[in-house]
């Protein structure tokens, strides 16, 4: 029975590699789009066609199940141009993540005490200068906690992309199970452990970064 695992462990670990590739790509797409959206929401023009469009984007991507997004993106696009499932998965999850990350960054920007930017403007900083010098470093500190959460959610979300045929960790676990009936608990147990392991490492790194950039008085808790 353990030979089922030992014999397949490399196969599974390569699956984690694919999962990580999807995870990192989708987080980067989500980060870039999400921060642009958040800046537009907080500092952008207060016009309905800007804020309205962003609101619809947000509601749709956070309101529609992941599987529907994956199917629409893969089968929708592949009807027009040939798109590899991996790319479709990264696009669908990346765009979806941008809606969540935009929420994180928007609330982080809105948590900055207004006096901070007022003081910067009074010194003669332009709006852009005040944002890059003060708003971003402070917002980054507010955002990192919720962003750690997003990291964990998205790692787990990558386990769904097997439905469009990407051979990542979950897909490989499924394959092993369907070739060796009766060992479902063992195989999925090991797979779950691998997800937990990656999650733990990612979270530890993010927590370490969070501790690194903390400063006295920031988010102090009254007890």
């Amino acid at each position: 029975m353990p030979s089922l695992i030992t014999g397949n462990i490399l196969y599974l670990i390569r699956g984690i590699g694919v999962s990580l590739e999807i995870l990192l790509s989708l987080l980067v797409i989500g980060f870039v789009l999400g921060s642009l959206i958040a800046f537009a929401q907080v500092y952008g023009p207060n016009k309905w066609y800007v804020q309205g469009v962003l609101r619809v984007y947000d509601r749709v991507l956070r309101g529609v199940p992941i599987l529907i997004l994956l199917f629409t993106c893969y089968f929708g696009i592949s009807g027009v141009i040939n798109i590899p499932p991996m790319l479709a998965a990264i696009l669908a999850l990346g765009v979806r993540s941008s809606a969540y990350q935009a929420q994180i960054f928007r609330s982080a920007l809105q948590s900055i005490p207004p006096g901070q930017l007022r003081a910067a403007r009074a010194l003669g900083f332009t709006q852009r200068g005040a944002i890059t010098t003060f708003a971003i470093p402070i917002a980054f500190r507010y955002a990192i906690g919720p962003w750690t959460n997003e990291f964990s959610s998205e790692l787990k979300a990558t386990s769904l992309v097997y439905v469009i045929g990407v051979s990542e960790l979950m897909d490989r676990a499924n394959n092993i199970v369907s070739n060796a009936a009766g060992h479902i608990l063992l195989v999925f147990g090991v797979t779950a452990f691998l997800y937990l392991f990656v999650n733990k490492i990612g979270n530890s790194l993010l927590y370490a970064l969070e501790r690194q950039i903390r400063f006295p008085g920031f988010e102090e808790v009254a007890r």
Binding site: Q116, R118, A119, A122, F134, I138, R141, F215, G217
Partner: peptide, 10 residues
């Protein structure tokens, strides 16, 4: 100079 200082906290 502001009433509530508004020093950059970070």
């Amino acid at each position: 100079v502001f009433q509530d200082f508004n020093l950059f906290l970070h």
